[in-house]
Simulated assay, not measured.
Amino acid sequence: MSERAAPLHVTTGGDVSALADRVVANLASAVHAAPETLRLPLLCLLSEGHVLVEDVPGVGKTVLAKALARSIDLRFQRMQFTPDLLPADVTGVNVFDRQSGSFQFRPGPVFANVLLVDEINRASPKTQSALLEAMQETQVTVDGATHELERPFLVIATQNPVEYEGTYPLPEAQLDRFLLRTGFGYPTADAEWEMLERRLERGVDEVELHSVVDRETLLAMQRAVEGVHVDESVGRYVVDLVAATRESPSVSVGSSPRGSLALVKLSRCRAALDGRDFVTPDDVKSVAIPALAHRLVLRPELWVQRRSGEDVVREILDHVRTPATETP
C-alpha cells in the first residue's frame, strides 16, 4: 500500500519543478532510463495528454506506467489488447439487475487515472476507437448515456515497432490523439547489471514505491502550468515549425493544428519543470520530435531510404529560424 502524500500548495513554476523532481527521482528508482525519458510521461500528465510508447518488449514500459501511478497515488489499470477484445471490454457495459429491475452500468478498465494499453495495435480498429472519446473528452458514452472519467486521466499505449504480423496499424487520426510518442531504448550495461543485481538480492523485479505527490497536488500543478507565459515570438515559432512540416518535400501529410497545441502544452510544462514561468525556443525544440514526428505521413520513397519522421523534424529544426526572445 502506498503512503498518501499530504496536499501541497502549488502556484509557480518553481513549485512544479521541485515536485516534478520528486516524481522523476521516484521513477528512476524503478525504471532504468534517461531522466529526460522519464520526464516525458510526466510532461504528458501535466499537459492532460496521452503517450504512445514504441519499443521492443521487456524494456520497462509496464513498470514505468505502474511507477508513475504509484508515485502520484493514482488508480492504475492495465489492458492487454488482443484481436478478440470488444469495445465494451474497454468502456464497460450495462447489465440487467433483477433485484432493481433496471440496467446498471459496470465501468470498464478505462475508468482509471492511468490506463496502460499494451500492444494497442493488436486489437481491431473498432476496439481501438473505443478509446478515442475517452482520450479526447475524458468521458465515455454507452447506450446513449455519458459517463465522466475522473481527472487526471492518462493513457499510456504501447506497440512493438518490429513485429507487425497480425496487427492493425493505428490510423493517422488516432495517432494524432497522442500528445507525444517516445521510446526507451536498451539500458546501458551498468543499468542492466544494476537491475539484475537488484533481482538477485531481493528476489523481486519491481521496487516498492510510495507516493510522493497526491492527486490534488497534481491537479494544482496542472493549473500552475497554465500560468506559464508564451511570448508571441515563441508562439509564432511554433506555428512556423508546424507549417514547415506541411511544406517539407519529404512529407505527404504534415501536422495539423493539434500539433501546434501539443508543442505549446509540452513547452509550457518543460519550462515549469525547469522552474521558469515563461517558455523559450529551447523548450519548444526539446519537445518537438516526440510531439510532431508521429503526426507526419512520409512519402513512400523515404521508407526505402530508412528515413523517419524524427529525421524530418530534426531537419526542420535546423532550417526554421529561431527567434530571439527576452526574459519577460
Rank of each mutant, 00 (worst) to 15 (best):
A65I: 03
H9V: 14
V162N: 00
R276G: 05
G14K: 06
V238K: 04
V230L: 13
G144H: 08
I316W: 05
L27Y: 06
G13Q: 05
E48F: 03
R246K: 14
L131I: 08
E172S: 12
W193K: 10
E301S: 12
Q139K: 08
V279R: 00
D89K: 03
L27T: 04
G185R: 04
L302W: 02
P35E: 10
V239D: 01
C44I: 13
V253F: 13
R177D: 12
A6F: 09
L263Q: 12
K126I: 08
T217L: 08
I120Y: 03
L298Q: 01
H210T: 12
H9L: 15
V204T: 14
L43P: 00
D176W: 07
E36R: 14
L132M: 14
R75W: 06
L263T: 10
D214F: 05
G101F: 00
T182N: 09
V23S: 02
L292N: 01
D214Y: 06
H32R: 15
P323Y: 10
L27I: 12
R75F: 04
A20Y: 05
T217R: 05
T325E: 10
G275H: 05
A28P: 01
S250K: 14
E194V: 13
R22M: 09
G92Q: 01
L292T: 05
V251H: 06
D205R: 15
A220K: 11
A262N: 07
Q80M: 08
L43R: 09
C269A: 15
